[in-house]
Design a protein around this nucleic acid. Sequence first.
DNA 1: AAATGCGACAACCGCGTTCCC
DNA 2: TGGGAACGCGGTTGTCGCATT
Length: 244
Amino acid sequence: MDAISSLMLQEGWRKGPWTALEDRLLTEYVQQHGEGSWNSVAELTGLRRSGKSCRLRWVNYLRPDLKRGKITPDEETVILQLHAMLGNRWSAIARCLPGRTDNEIKNYWRTHFKKARPSRRARAQLLHQYQLQQQEQRRQYLQSLHLLHQHQQQQLQLLQQQSQQLMMTQQQSPPEPDHQAAVMAMVSNDDQQGSPASTAEHCTLPVPDDDDALLWDSLWKLVDGDGCADGSSGGEYYTARTPV
DNA sequence: AAATGCGACAACCGCGTTCCC
DNA sequence: TGGGAACGCGGTTGTCGCATT
């Protein structure tokens, strides 16, 4: 707490939510004296509020031209477009939306468009989705291995048949050594491939491309809970959600 | 039914700018 | 022209009510 705030409390300045009586006093003051000279509000009305607090209350809540109610889709569009052009210049954006305050627009933006650190529940859901995706990847991989093995078995049977036919014909004329060795090598290699299950034990999941690697890396950071705790680090904006 | 999470919004705070003497 | 008061702005925090677990 700074010196001024401390002094305010010592002198009995009120803080926190405004009461209906305070609102009425402030409204009557503005009706009589106009906006401005906020520091004289306390003196002339008996309000125990700082000039700063009075101005904020008037601008953000009591002004008669304020528009109440939800931000409309049209207004949301304007906010998005202006924010893309102006950045966080809330007062400039508010000037283009009659009846809306900079505070209101700022709050709306932060609630709807600024990426927040996912909650514990959201992180658990992300982890669950990730595990399901991994299971599905592994299942597809094993299935493809199984199909490959079936194909290899068919090839092996074919080769064995050809080999037997060859042996039978060679009984009439001696085989060429190179050819026989090549056939035996192919058969031998196929045997060493092993069953799909044993192969799967050594298999690794497909290596993700760069984008996927980044995604999973981010995911693990979220799951591990070592993301920035206060959500105040830079670069955390993302594109607008689809309005509901 | 109680605990917890989350969105919405009001209000506060610090700092930069403007105004006035 | 310098300094202090007033004002304006953007970031942050606190609170409340509803939804979900």
